[in-house]
């Protein structure tokens, strides 16, 4: 059976048309599917259905299993507390989410409160069948390549495990501890990725936004982010191709990003894709804000510039598609990529 065109494109192979894969995650997918954001998080069936609905509605070329923790276990679901205008969800890892009944879900508490908690951190069983239920549903639908998702260890440590500001201070004052946090995050990411691959994802989309040169120095990226990204990629690539994304202006680390071993780099809208595309397949990078503010004509113009790069290109957004992006703009992206 021939591979999905998007899997060919990220490996730099010829495809008939340019595959299109906007970064549609919870905010936009739940909106166009008409479901509450908390249902998207709590119900694996609704999460999978919303992603499949978005793919059908727009006709793009991937299904994005983007949820970092994928599905919830029965125990996690039983522990959900209804607090009137919001729910509280506590993951087995220890990270707690606030899920407003109207509005965007967000992390309420990190898994670790202070340094001492790290010793008692336990990585949950990421291979738990219920966690992989959404991926299973997406695969069963046979609607296109399903991409798993890993938030890389540096970002995972500074968002899920530890308070970001304290993490950044630790980088300067207690680097050994910061490294231990990233190591713990690495274990989570490795198991999560392996479980997603075992569940059948066709490729992996890895992202490391907190390691962006807009946030930390290229030296920090090289010493505390990249080594772990490299290890993960080398592990995952035994089975599936990998796309690697870092937000912001990544000009100062682009060589390092290429050296991670990723098959394809996903670039933020502020980056010029052309010079990178000469060296490696690229993914991106229509500005998400323009999907809200502009009309189809401008979106076609922006998309066409990316399509014109030729082989080894996936047309996408430079970052996550906003909830209120105009559907006609995303449809225009798809049409441009597919040569319609």
């Amino acid at each position: 059976m021939p591979e999905h065109p998007i899997l060919e494109a990220i490996r730099g192979r010829e495809t008939e048309t340019v595959p299109v894969a906007p970064l549609i995650t919870l905010p936009h997918a739940s909106r166009i599917a008409g479901i509450h954001t908390y249902e998207y998080v709590l119900d694996p069936g609704k999460y999978a259905e919303a992603q499949l609905h978005a793919r059908r509605f727009y006709g793009y070329d991937w299904v994005f299993a983007h949820q970092i923790f994928q599905g919830l276990t029965s125990e996690e679901r039983r522990g959900v507390e209804d607090r009137g205008d919001h729910f509280i969800l506590r993951l087995e890892l220890g990270t707690t989410f606030k899920l407003p009944k109207k509005g965007a879900p967000h992390i309420a508490e990190r898994a670790l409160k202070d340094k001492e908690d790290l010793a008692s951190l336990e990585i949950p069983d990421m291979f738990h069948a219920e966690r992989m239920r959404p991926i299973q549903l997406m695969k069963e639908a046979e609607e296109g390549a399903v991409f798993g998702n890993i938030r890389c260890p540096f970002t995972f440590a500074s968002t899920f495990l530890y308070e970001p500001e304290d993490f950044y201070i630790a980088l300067k004052k207690d680097e050994d501890f910061a490294r231990e946090l990233v190591e713990a995050a690495y274990e989570y990411c490795l198991q999560s990725g392996q479980a997603q691959i075992e569940a059948g994802v066709d490729a992996m989309f890895m992202e490391d936004p907190s390691a962006s040169p807009d946030v930390v120095s290229p030296e920090t990226f090289r010493s505390l982010a990249m080594p772990y990204v490299k290890r993960l990629i080398s592990e995952f690539r035994k089975k599936v191709p990998v796309v690697f994304h870092v937000c912001g202006d990544t000009g100062s680390i682009i060589e390092d990003m290429m050296a991670t071993g990723a098959d394809c780099l996903s670039l933020d809208q502020c980056m010029d894709m052309a010079p990178v595309h000469e060296r490696i397949p690229v993914w991106g990078n229509v500005e998400p804000r323009k999907l809200v503010s502009e009309g189809p004509e401008e979106i076609r113009r922006l998309s066409q510039r990316i399509v014109d790069l030729g082989r080894g290109v996936v047309l996408s957004s430079g970052c996550v598609v906003p909830p209120i992006a105009k559907p006609e703009n995303i449809k225009e992206m798809v049409k441009t990529g597919h040569g319609d």
Binding site: E165, Y168, I169, L171, K172, K173, P213, V215, V216, S217, T220, S252
Partner: peptide, 14 residues
Amino acid sequence: RKEYYVPETLLSAH
């Protein structure tokens, strides 16, 4: 000038 990043700036601010 991108000689300082968020961690360095945070440390100075604190």
